[in-house]
């Protein structure tokens, strides 16, 4: 399983990298960690003519904090690097929890956060986390830079809102309320596998009621899904009174498919349960954090 031939560039400057990507005569692809791309190349399911390695570009490395607490993760930052950053894990515990479900240390030590987002396997953890955390994608090309909200970024299976010549250079996670509680749940065949179904839930506890509820499911269709109906249902109420209604709303909002690992029917069945479990845990954590705040 040897890949087809290609030309290789590892530019040290971002403008040079973007110029290489702007070549519309050749089939050009970017490589970061390669954990998704190289297997496809070894199977010859992908055969780019030109491979541009982004890992030497200084601007793409590193985690940057904005004054308001937003975290910007450059395209070359590995999943392991993010996990090792104490401040990032404290500020975004659900991000850390979700990333720990990605494969194994040998994958995370090279796979990048942005690479997983740009690859967009709908069973993967990071796209769902980005959606749940309202992340913003920084997309650059030789023509300039634009920001894309996560919800607009994930289009369909392996398809994201990147035009030819464009590169995801960073993802920014806005600061989360300090009293928010989050939970991450995933059903997988084996430890470290892609999810059969997964859920990311978050909320604050205000009085005895949920506020700012977020619920994202993944593995339930061609992209991660925010379940707005559930978010509206729970906001302003005590979750215990409403959780029973969640599964039906979840099932109505998702469109899972059958594959080798699970049927659509199975995914529909368990998605609701998983959502309830994630929401319940997020609520418990929110109440705990709310008390910490007092």
């Amino acid at each position: 399983m040897k890949p087809a031939p290609f030309a290789y560039h590892a530019p040290a400057q971002l403008p040079e990298l973007l110029e290489l990507l702007a070549d519309d005569l050749s089939d050009v692809r970017v490589i970061a960690g390669g954990q998704s791309l190289v297997p496809m190349m070894n199977f010859r399911l992908a055969a780019p003519e030109v491979l541009v390695d982004l890992r030497r570009v200084p601007e793409l490395r590193g985690l940057r904090w904005a004054p308001d607490g937003a975290l910007t993760v450059g395209a070359a930052v590995t999943q392991a690097q993010l996990l090792r950053d104490r401040r990032a894990c404290d500020a975004f515990p659900v991000l850390a929890e979700g990333i720990r479900h990605i494969g194994h240390p040998q994958i995370r030590s090279r796979g990048t956060v942005c690479g997983s987002l740009a690859h967009h396997d709908p069973h993967a953890e990071l796209p769902a986390l980005a959606l749940a955390l309202d992340a913003r994608m920084t997309v650059a090309s030789a023509q300039g830079v634009r920001e894309v909200p996560a919800d607009d970024f994930f289009v369909s299976y392996y398809e994201v809102a990147l035009e030819p010549g464009e590169l995801l250079t960073a993802v920014t996670f806005p600061a989360q309320p300090a009293d928010a509680g989050w939970a991450f749940r995933e059903l997988a065949r084996r430890r470290g596998d892609f999810a059969l179904v997964g859920a990311v839930a978050g909320m604050r506890a205000v009085g005895g009621a949920a506020a700012g509820t977020r619920l994202v499911l993944f593995g339930v269709g061609d992209r991660p899904r925010r379940i707005a109906a559930v978010e509206q249902l729970l906001d302003g109420a005590a979750p215990a009174e409403r959780l029973g209604e969640v599964p039906a709303l979840v099932v109505a909002a998702i469109d899972p498919v059958s594959d080798l690992h699970a049927s659509a029917e199975y995914r529909r069945e368990v998605a609701g349960e998983l959502a309830v479990a994630a929401l319940a845990e997020a609520w418990e954590r929110a109440r705990g954090r709310g008390e910490d705040q007092r």
Binding site: M1, G34, Q35
Partner: peptide
């Protein structure tokens, strides 16, 4: 050669990585 079995695991700059997924 698709990054699952780990038989090719090496340390690259101190980190365990699958050599079959690195050019």
């Amino acid at each position: 050669e698709h990054g699952v079995c780990g038989a090719c695991t090496i340390l690259l700059d101190g980190e365990p990585q699958r050599a079959c997924l690195v050019f």
